Simulated scan of single mutants.
Amino acid sequence: MDTPFGDIAARIRWHRNLLGKNQTEYAELIGVKRTVLNNWETGRQRVSLDGALLLRAKFGLSLDFIYAGIDDALPMSLRNALLESPIEIS
């Protein structure tokens, strides 16, 4: 992805798709506007610390995973899902 935050965008999009949610549903689950989530998922805007903390609190996504792609601190169920369905950065 040719955007400044494409790698972060791909990880968030991967997780949303893993849950089978559309952007509106996922945004509602974490308490942000769909337009904010869309900006994260397109890589136009980097996830704020507050946004990353919401993702961590709701889904157990570690900040290391969100920002750097390090999966060590993810719950085992998410690590297994990542192995089964790797993140595609386009």
Rank of each mutant, 00 (worst) to 15 (best):
residue 1 M to Q: 02
residue 3 T to N: 02
residue 3 T to P: 01
residue 4 P to N: 05
residue 4 P to L: 05
residue 5 F to P: 03
residue 5 F to V: 07
residue 5 F to D: 11
residue 5 F to Q: 07
residue 6 G to Y: 04
residue 6 G to S: 12
residue 7 D to Y: 08
residue 7 D to W: 07
residue 7 D to H: 10
residue 8 I to P: 02
residue 9 A to C: 00
residue 10 A to L: 01
residue 10 A to H: 05
residue 10 A to R: 01
residue 10 A to M: 01
residue 10 A to Y: 03
residue 10 A to F: 01
residue 11 R to M: 06
residue 11 R to V: 02
residue 11 R to Q: 14
residue 12 I to G: 07
residue 12 I to D: 14
residue 12 I to E: 12
residue 13 R to F: 03
residue 13 R to V: 01
residue 14 W to G: 08
residue 15 H to M: 02
residue 15 H to Y: 15
residue 15 H to N: 12
residue 16 R to K: 11
residue 17 N to P: 06
residue 17 N to K: 12
residue 19 L to R: 11
residue 19 L to I: 05
residue 21 K to E: 14
residue 22 N to T: 13
residue 22 N to F: 00
residue 22 N to D: 15
residue 23 Q to H: 12
residue 23 Q to Y: 04
residue 24 T to N: 13
residue 25 E to I: 06
residue 26 Y to L: 03
residue 27 A to Q: 04
residue 27 A to H: 04
residue 27 A to Y: 06
residue 27 A to M: 05
residue 28 E to I: 08
residue 29 L to E: 13
residue 30 I to M: 13
residue 30 I to K: 03
residue 30 I to E: 09
residue 31 G to A: 10
residue 31 G to W: 14
residue 31 G to V: 10
residue 32 V to R: 03
residue 32 V to H: 03
residue 32 V to L: 03
residue 32 V to Q: 02
residue 33 K to V: 09
residue 34 R to M: 06
residue 35 T to C: 01
residue 36 V to N: 13
residue 37 L to Y: 13
residue 37 L to K: 04
residue 38 N to P: 00
residue 38 N to Q: 11
residue 38 N to E: 11
residue 39 N to L: 07
residue 40 W to H: 02
residue 40 W to V: 03
residue 40 W to P: 01
residue 40 W to Y: 13
residue 41 E to T: 08
residue 41 E to F: 01
residue 41 E to G: 05
residue 42 T to A: 08
residue 42 T to H: 08
residue 42 T to K: 05
residue 46 R to I: 11
residue 46 R to S: 12
residue 47 V to T: 05
residue 47 V to E: 02
residue 48 S to K: 05
residue 48 S to Y: 05
residue 48 S to A: 12
residue 48 S to W: 04
residue 50 D to T: 10
residue 51 G to N: 06
residue 52 A to W: 03
residue 52 A to H: 02
residue 53 L to P: 01
residue 54 L to W: 07
residue 55 L to H: 09
residue 56 R to Q: 15
residue 56 R to D: 15
residue 57 A to C: 08
residue 57 A to V: 11
residue 58 K to N: 05
residue 59 F to R: 05
residue 60 G to A: 14
residue 60 G to V: 06
residue 60 G to L: 06
residue 61 L to Y: 04
residue 61 L to R: 03
residue 61 L to E: 05
residue 62 S to G: 11
residue 62 S to H: 09
residue 63 L to S: 06
residue 64 D to I: 01
residue 65 F to Q: 03
residue 66 I to V: 14
residue 67 Y to S: 00
residue 67 Y to T: 06
residue 67 Y to K: 09
residue 68 A to G: 00
residue 69 G to V: 01
residue 69 G to I: 01
residue 69 G to S: 08
residue 70 I to Q: 12
residue 71 D to H: 13
residue 73 A to S: 15
residue 73 A to K: 15
residue 74 L to M: 09
residue 76 M to I: 14
residue 76 M to K: 12
residue 76 M to S: 06
residue 77 S to L: 14
residue 78 L to A: 09
residue 78 L to C: 04
residue 78 L to Q: 12
residue 79 R to S: 07
residue 79 R to E: 09
residue 79 R to Y: 13
residue 80 N to P: 00
residue 81 A to P: 03
residue 81 A to C: 04
residue 81 A to T: 06
residue 82 L to S: 05
residue 82 L to E: 09
residue 83 L to G: 09
residue 83 L to F: 08
residue 83 L to S: 10
residue 84 E to G: 08
residue 84 E to I: 08
residue 84 E to F: 10
residue 84 E to Y: 13
residue 85 S to P: 06
residue 85 S to Y: 14
residue 86 P to H: 11
residue 86 P to D: 10
residue 86 P to T: 07
residue 88 E to H: 06
residue 90 S to R: 04
residue 90 S to Q: 13
